[in-house]
Amino acid sequence: MEEAVNIVILALMAVTVIGIVFIRNLMAVVMLSGIYSLLAASVFVVLDAVDVAFTEAAVGAGISTVLFIGTLALTTRIEKKPAHKPYLPFIVVAITGAALIYGSFDMARFGDAEAVTNKHVAPYYLENTKKHTGIPNVVTAVLASYRGYDTLGEVVVIFTAGIGVILLLGSWRRGLTPPAPHKRDEA
């Protein structure tokens, strides 16, 4: 049953990606990428990674879509025809994809309890989270307490992104006088 659900969702994701590649209307592409994120969130639910699914649905399907629409409002809605032939990018993507698939052969078997990744720190967290923090959600305990330093870094990354947007596009720039007259103004 779970396998069938996985196959259906992954097939839908593939169809979505093919749609994104071929459609020139960027509004439709944005909608499709939102759908792709929602499908990815469904895969995470099937994998029992509810926290990740939650984030994917909120950030990928929600906020990213809104930001893309905002960008489209500032730029254009129709993708321009590429000026060059797509063969070189296609070869690069094909080789990278083949390398990634080749690399995946060395990965642990899906759901293998004997895999190194599942025997390293994971059993320690599962065993001791209740004892150390008394918190039922191990994901939150790992994120906020055991790996609190990493999460602090993530928050600083988001902080930096916000500062960057304010500096580049923020309303404070409207008060600035441009340092040199534009050529466009002289014309």
């Binding site: 906020i63 809104v66 905002g70 150390h132 918190i135 305990a141 602090l152 916000g162 947007v165 304010i166």
Partner: peptide
């Protein structure tokens, strides 16, 4: 531990919400 996690999650939530809204409004 409980108090600490509560407080840092509050910090995370505040920053994330503020950045998201700032980016959208901008």
């Amino acid at each position: 531990q409980h108090l600490g996690i509560f407080l840092i999650e509050l910090g995370v939530g505040t920053t994330v919400a503020s950045v998201m809204m700032t980016v959208f409004f901008t």
